[in-house]
C-alpha cells in the first residue's frame, strides 16, 4: 500500500533541507490536511516522510525591521492569541477566529495552510491583501539558500504552488501597516464552525481623506487558487470611497470572478455574494 521507506523528524533546518535535497519527500507539519488526504487516497506518500514539527526556529511571531515575520510552524491558535498579530495584522487574527475548531486550530500550522494551497484556505486571502511574501529555503549545494516571493504569485492551482521539491517554506513576512491602513476579511460559510468557505473576501488599503489608495482586493473559493481582483482594485484606487465608487467596485467584483457550482453553492450565488459582501465591506470602510 504505502511506499514509505524512511521516516525522519529532523531537529534543525539544515538537517531538514538536507533530507529534502535527497528528493521524494512528503512533508508533515500538523497533519490536519495530510492525514485525511492520504487516508482517502487523494495524496500518495513519497518514499520519505519528514515530520518538520521538531525543527527549531520555525515557530513564532517576531518583528524583523519593517516586517512581521511568522514562522511556518506557528499554529492557527498561536496566531489567534499573538499580541504582535493583534497589533499589526488583526485581519489575519480575524480569519483565524473563523477557522475550523479549537482542536484543529491547535494542530494546524500557517505553513500547512499555505502549502495545502486550497482555494478556500482561510489565511490566504488576508495574507494576500497584506502584501505577504513567503520565504523558501533550500540547500542545493551544501549551503542554505533562501528566496522570497509574493504570496499572491505562489499558487498555481488547487494543491499546487511554485515551491520546488527541495524547498521548505520557512516563514512569511508581512510589511508593517502604513498610517491610515485599513483591512477587512469576510468569510461566508453555512455555519460558524468547521465550515469550508463558500467564498471569502479580503480588502486592504490606505484610507486618507475619504480616499482609498494602495488598494488590495482578494477572493477565496471563486477560482482554482485564491486570487487578487485587479479590476475591482482599479475601480477603487485613488477614488473617493463614495456610494458611486462602492457600487462600481462591487459590480466589477461580480464581473471579474468566475466561480463554479459545487456542493457549497452555485456559481450564480457566489457571484451575488461577492457583489453584496464587497459592497457591505466597503460601506463599513467608508463609515469607519
Amino acid at each position: 500500500m504505502t511506499a514509505i521507506e524512511r521516516y525522519a523528524a529532523p531537529q534543525s533546518l539544515d538537517e531538514a533541507l538536507g533530507i529534502l535535497q535527497q528528493g521524494e519527500v512528503t512533508i508533515l507539519a500538523g497533519g490536519t490536511d495530510l492525514m485525511p488526504q492520504t487516508k482517502a487516497g487523494r495524496v500518495a506518500f513519497k518514499p520519505t516522510l519528514m515530520n518538520i514539527g521538531r525543527v527549531a526556529g520555525l515557530k513564532g511571531v517576531t518583528l524583523d525591521g519593517q516586517h512581521l515575520r511568522i514562522g511556518a510552524l506557528t499554529t492557527i491558535s498561536e496566531l489567534l492569541r499573538d499580541p504582535l498579530v493583534a497589533q499589526h495584522a488583526p485581519v489575519l487574527a480575524e480569519a483565524c477566529d473563523h477557522f475550523a475548531s479549537d482542536q484543529i486550530r491547535n494542530a494546524g500550522t500557517l505553513g500547512g495552510n499555505i502549502n495545502n494551497a486550497s482555494p478556500a484556505g482561510d489565511t490566504l486571502v488576508p495574507l494576500i491583501v497584506l502584501d505577504t511574501e513567503v520565504e523558501l529555503a533550500s540547500k542545493p549545494n551544501g549551503s542554505v539558500a533562501t528566496r522570497r516571493m509574493p504570496l499572491a504569485e505562489f499558487f498555481t492551482g488547487p494543491g499546487r504552488t511554485k515551491r520546488n521539491a527541495n524547498e521548505l517554506l520557512t516563514a512569511v513576512r508581512i510589511p508593517l501597516p502604513k498610517p491610515g491602513h485599513v483591512a477587512r476579511f469576510y468569510k461566508f460559510g453555512t455555519r460558524p464552525a468547521l465550515d469550508i468557505s463558500t467564498i471569502s473576501i479580503g480588502i486592504a488599503g490606505v484610507m486618507r481623506d475619504g480616499t482609498l489608495t494602495n488598494t488590495r482586493v482578494a477572493f477565496g473559493a471563486v477560482a482554482p487558487t485564491p486570487v487578487r481582483a485587479p479590476r475591482t482594485e482599479a475601480a477603487l484606487e485613488g477614488r473617493r470611497l463614495d456610494a458611486g465608487a462602492i457600487e462600481a467596485a462591487a459590480d466589477a467584483a461580480r464581473d471579474e470572478v468566475n466561480p463554479i457550482d459545487d456542493i457549497r453553492a452555485s456559481a450564480w450565488y457566489r457571484k451575488e455574494l461577492i457583489h453584496n459582501m464587497t459592497k457591505r465591506m466597503l460601506d463599513h470602510v467608508a463609515q469607519a
Binding site: 491558535s77 491547535n106 494542530a107
Partner: peptide, 16 residues
C-alpha cells in the same frame, strides 16, 4: 497541554 483530534495525528508524531 493543548487539545487535538487524535484521528488527525500521526502516532509517530507523539514521540517525546
Amino acid at each position: 497541554g493543548e487539545t487535538r483530534n487524535s484521528c488527525l495525528m500521526f502516532a509517530v508524531d507523539l514521540d517525546g
